[in-house]
Simulated scan of single mutants.
Amino acid sequence: MILIADGGATRTSWSFINDESVFNFETEGYHPFFVDARYIEQSLQKALPDILASCCDQIREVCFYSAGAGYSAEADMVLKNGIASVFPHAGVSLATDLLAASRALLQKDAGFAAILGTGSNSGLYNGKEITHNIESGGFLLGDEGSGAYLGKMIIAGYIRGEMSGELKQAFEDRYQLTPEQLINEVYTTKTPNRYCARFAAFAGAHIQNTYCRELVIVNFDDFFKKIIVHYPNYQHYSINAVGSVAYYLKDIFEEVAARHGMTVGNLFPSAIDGLTRYHQARH
């Protein structure tokens, strides 16, 4: 019995593989920059479905792909200790969410993979490992193309009075927040990246509005201008991506990619199904 996990900042998608059967479920995201091992343990224990909670001792392998893996030994230990507390007899291996995306999108083929979810990342994959990665900078320094980046623009547009009266009213009806409350929430919440990313859905819901459409274009255009075009020979590749932002805003993503001389390949809302296929083929 093995567990595969694709851990983003907002949610973690799990695949429980038992012989030929597969069972999928979700928990919240466990980014080691924002949570500790005890938090992971308690959250996992509460969220485990009954089919798995009764056999935690029988899990022999946990492959955890994380948005926060590989940055430091301390961050990796937060993940390992939290997971090992729930699955005490399992070997826990960590890898980056970018490797998860690459394996899900491309399996064993070489190519370009990207993540455009709560955060963003990208890299060139040779069929085994990431060979070139330009750091996105994370929530504070970058994350262009992501839900958090788009959400920040939506929030800023509202608090600065940039929205039309009709759009402003739609925003207030949906979220019931004043500009002052929004600013307070952004700066006091424990996970500001996740908080800001939730507002990206507003742009998607109002994509026919010129203002929202332009913000989505800027979000993707910044992703290409500030990151993708700096990869060597980037136009030789199609761009493949996992994550809700690229998937649900596919038409605009393809439009912006074409402006930069790239075609779009696979787009998946999540990496977990492709990642499960990858690990099933390996075992």
Score class of each variant (00 low, 15 high):
residue 38 R to C: 12
residue 39 Y to V: 11
residue 40 I to Y: 05
residue 41 E to K: 13
residue 42 Q to M: 06
residue 43 S to W: 02
residue 43 S to K: 07
residue 43 S to T: 11
residue 44 L to D: 11
residue 44 L to S: 04
residue 45 Q to M: 15
residue 47 A to D: 15
residue 47 A to L: 08
residue 48 L to C: 12
residue 48 L to E: 07
residue 48 L to M: 09
residue 57 D to N: 14
residue 57 D to E: 15
residue 57 D to W: 00
residue 60 R to D: 15
residue 60 R to Q: 13
residue 62 V to M: 04
residue 63 C to P: 01
residue 64 F to M: 11
residue 64 F to N: 03
residue 64 F to H: 09
residue 66 S to Q: 01
residue 67 A to Y: 00
residue 68 G to P: 02
residue 69 A to Q: 09
residue 71 Y to S: 11
residue 71 Y to H: 14
residue 74 E to H: 12
residue 74 E to A: 13
residue 76 D to G: 05
residue 76 D to Q: 09
residue 77 M to N: 14
residue 77 M to L: 14
residue 79 L to G: 06
residue 81 N to F: 00
residue 82 G to M: 05
residue 85 S to K: 14
residue 86 V to S: 06
residue 87 F to R: 03
residue 88 P to D: 12
residue 90 A to I: 09
residue 90 A to Q: 00
residue 91 G to Y: 13
residue 92 V to M: 04
residue 92 V to F: 00
residue 93 S to K: 15
residue 94 L to W: 10
residue 95 A to E: 15
residue 97 D to L: 10
residue 97 D to M: 08
residue 98 L to K: 10
residue 98 L to E: 10
residue 100 A to T: 06
residue 103 R to E: 13
residue 104 A to C: 10
residue 106 L to K: 01
residue 107 Q to P: 05
residue 107 Q to D: 15
residue 110 A to C: 06
residue 111 G to K: 05
residue 111 G to R: 06
residue 112 F to I: 00
residue 114 A to E: 08
residue 115 I to E: 06
residue 116 L to A: 14
residue 116 L to R: 13
residue 117 G to I: 10
residue 119 G to H: 07
residue 119 G to F: 01
residue 119 G to V: 01
residue 120 S to K: 02
residue 120 S to E: 05
residue 122 S to E: 03
residue 122 S to M: 14
residue 123 G to D: 03
residue 123 G to V: 01
residue 124 L to Q: 01
residue 125 Y to L: 10
